[in-house]
Amino acid sequence: MKKLITTAIALMSAGLLVAACSAGDSNMSAGDSNMSKSTGENGISDNPDAWSGYQTAREGVRAMNDDDFENPVMPYVDLAANIYDSRDNKGNISCADCHGAPEDETGGRSGIPMKGVGASYPRFNADTGKPINVELQINKCREERQVEKGFKYESDEMLGMTALVNYQSRGMPVVSTAANPDDELHSAWQTGKDFYYQRRGQLDMGCNNCHEDNAENIIRAETLSQGQSNGFPTYRFKWQKPGSLHRRFRGCNKNIRAANFNYGSDEYLNLETYLAWRGRGLPVEAPAVRK
């Protein structure tokens, strides 16, 4: 009997039984194929061909993605929720003091709500003249207001905080106008686009060779996605923990035997800006779960 139970649990951890048990009680049905499609404002999208990796994910993965309890990023979100409310820092101020509760749409004292952040970043940072993403914005706040050292990229705290913030925008369409020549982010967008189509590394491949030319085709045992960024930070089974978009970039660069760049580097910020535009209209799925 003992052996039987152990086997059953092993299966559950692998997410096999999970799919069978929970398909019924998730809010977003796994069969709803519109879930991962671009919608845009008023349901009209200028980017109708975009789709996220959710579309090609297996049923069990989708079930983990959709059920906020099973989603393995949620313990990180719980951890971040404690940090969000904590005044335990040199500035003696919590995130909630300025922004209100994470789900507060008025944004508390500062009038900057967390809802919508995940859908609209990266934004232009006038101080540096460069794009700024959610991770760097969190650290900017932490350094300026809380007078503490910023969280390390890829630390549990940082992953939790970005997941917590992006989670508030779940389902909202990604907004980006960076392609507009008048937009402040336009030059970053252009550099990011050049990066995207630039062949690099020993395998001499650009991002587009996989994610445009061969999206939906099989690479080894995996289905290639369009490489959209709307689900990050994403839990990957391979990582067995959530990871940031820049970790994914580094993995991609490594796979094509190219030199990778640092977390939060200008190259990746520009690329992130381009990817946000490329996936405009897609619903924010963060924190997503993928194979």
Partner: peptide
């Protein structure tokens, strides 16, 4: 035992 993957989910 060790066959159980990281972040065990048990229901």
């Amino acid at each position: 035992y060790t066959a159980v993957s990281a972040n065990p989910y048990i229901a």
